[in-house]
Simulated assay, not measured.
Amino acid sequence: MDNLSKAKEEVTRFCEHIGGWFRGEEGIAAAGTAGLLTNFSPDFRMIAPNGARKTQQDLEAWMPEVLGRFPHMRVIVTDMQGYATEHHALLTYTEIQSDGEQENIRYSSAVFIRDGDRMLWLDLWERS
């Protein structure tokens, strides 16, 4: 599989899993934050919609706070587009988070780096 396809697959996988994490699904929760963040580079960094800068460690610390907190959460990815080289991929996509009452839309850009057969999240920029 080419790097662009792998990166797209990773966005889809992570969004499905983070939705399961928010809902508190047993299999996803059992894997813990390490399982959820398995394809994140140790150098991962992001800019949240509010402009806050976060690291992988910040994300790891936040994850237990939201485990099972939104039992009806659905996370949908649309409009995924991208470009890839032999070692990197850049994707843009829209992420829609809906808990049945409220909807949160994030417009995201993500940079991935190749690590063996995997594409690892390196940078993520989200805006509302």
Rank of each mutant, 00 (worst) to 15 (best):
Y107G: 06
L36D: 03
P42C: 11
I105D: 11
Y83F: 08
A48Y: 14
N39R: 13
A7L: 08
E60I: 12
G35D: 10
V77W: 01
T78D: 10
D58Y: 02
E103M: 04
R23F: 09
I18N: 02
H87I: 14
F44C: 04
W121S: 02
F44R: 05
A89T: 13
A52L: 02
E95Y: 02
G82M: 05
A30E: 15
G116W: 03
G35H: 03
G82T: 08
E9T: 09
N3A: 11
W62E: 08
R114E: 08
S109D: 14
T85L: 10
H87L: 13
L59Q: 00
Q102W: 06
A84Q: 13
D58Q: 00
A110E: 09
V75Y: 01
E25I: 05
A31E: 10
I113N: 04
A89M: 15
G68R: 05
F14M: 04
Y83L: 10
P49K: 14
L4G: 11
T92F: 13
E95Q: 07
S128Q: 12
E9A: 15
T94R: 03
T55Q: 05
S5P: 10
T12V: 14
L36I: 06
F44M: 11
D123C: 04
F14L: 09
V77I: 11
A48W: 15
M80R: 05
L90C: 12
E25C: 00
D58R: 00
F40D: 00
I47G: 02
D2T: 15
M63P: 04
P64N: 07
G100N: 11
